[in-house]
């Protein structure tokens, strides 16, 4: 790492001297009176609940496609459908007869990497899981203890967190998956006796819309569509997209991150209920 202070003839400026006595009581004394712990606790609980559900959903390897009851509903955890369980019902994907594990595993790597490196989720889990920091003006876990291994902090400058910088590549795949889930939403209008619409169809349409709202509001998307330009005046169409579309979605990135996360699990759960025959999917027309 190059620093100005490393220049041989440049004295270390007074303001960057370390270990001077700092203002106020010791950092270990938390002075905040509000419920600063409530938000990280709520986020921790929400993400943990999703992890538990997603693990069960990904490993159950069954009842992820409702073709057996005349519905073309495919769980987003298993989309695109890689196995013969869908092709036997006329689904367009499939054919991975050699794959022995749950087909959700190779699929979920892509949306998982997108969400793990997402700028919003990074904030969420750095705060609620890694406690770095748990809340503003609350010390990082372990940072007040001299001998704690958590006393050193290098942020996203070293392995493994430096890999957060691949976010734009995960976004490229996320766009492909958003397209696939859109296909699934359209396919959900297909019934064994023609075009129709059931409650599941509505759920899959909402799922696709939320996935697009989350994917296109991504900070990397915002950069790639125009935010990376130094000037906008020579790129009017990119400015229009950046300002009126992507930045607007980006303002609500947190909201869409949670809504889409919940809805994916809900769509999977609904598909499972329909596929197992636990409930009958009401058909509107």
């Amino acid at each position: 790492m190059t620093t100005l202070n490393a220049e041989p003839d440049t004295p270390v400026p007074v303001g960057i001297e370390k270990n001077r006595v700092r203002g106020g009581p010791p950092r270990s004394e938390i002075l905040r009176r509000d419920k600063w712990w409530a938000q990280p606790l709520a986020i921790f609980s929400g993400l943990l609940a999703f992890i538990v559900y997603a693990t069960w959903a990904a490993l159950r390897n069954g009842h992820f496609y409702a073709g057996n009851v005349g519905r073309d509903y495919l769980s987003p955890f298993y989309s695109p459908c890689l196995t013969n369980s869908c092709t036997s019902n006329g689904y367009v994907w499939g054919g991975w007869t050699w794959w022995r594990l749950s087909p959700a595993i190779p699929i979920l790597i892509f949306p998982l990497s997108f969400r793990l490196s997402c700028y919003y989720y990074r904030k969420s889990y750095y705060r609620s899981f890694w406690l770095s920091p748990p809340s503003c003006a609350v010390p990082d876990a372990g940072s007040t203890k001299a001998k704690s291994p958590r006393n050193k902090y290098s942020g996203e400058t070293k392995f493994p967190l430096i890999f957060q910088n691949i976010h734009r590549y995960t976004w490229y795949f996320a766009v492909i998956f958003a397209g696939i889930l859109t296909f699934d939403a359209v396919a959900a209008f297909r019934f064994h006796n023609g075009i129709g619409m059931g409650l599941g169809t509505l759920i899959f349409v909402v799922n696709a819309l939320l996935i697009w709202a989350y994917t296109l509001g991504c900070h990397s998307c915002r950069h790639l569509c125009g935010g990376g330009l130094r000037t906008f005046s020579s790129a009017n169409s990119r400015h229009f997209i950046w300002k009126n579309f992507v930045s607007k979605l980006n303002e609500h990135h947190q909201l869409f991150a949670w809504l889409s996360l919940f809805w994916i699990a809900f769509a999977d759960f609904y598909t499972w209920l329909v596929a197992t025959g636990a409930i009958h999917d009401p058909r509107f027309f």
Partner: peptide, 25 residues
């Protein structure tokens, strides 16, 4: 209380010259 990131001068007053040194960079 004073800002806890910067060295204290007196009571609520801290030495924020760290920021001016960074600005020079």
């Amino acid at each position: 209380s004073p800002m806890r990131t910067f060295p204290i001068i007196k009571d609520l007053v801290t030495d924020v010259s760290f920021n001016f040194e960074v600005a020079k960079k």
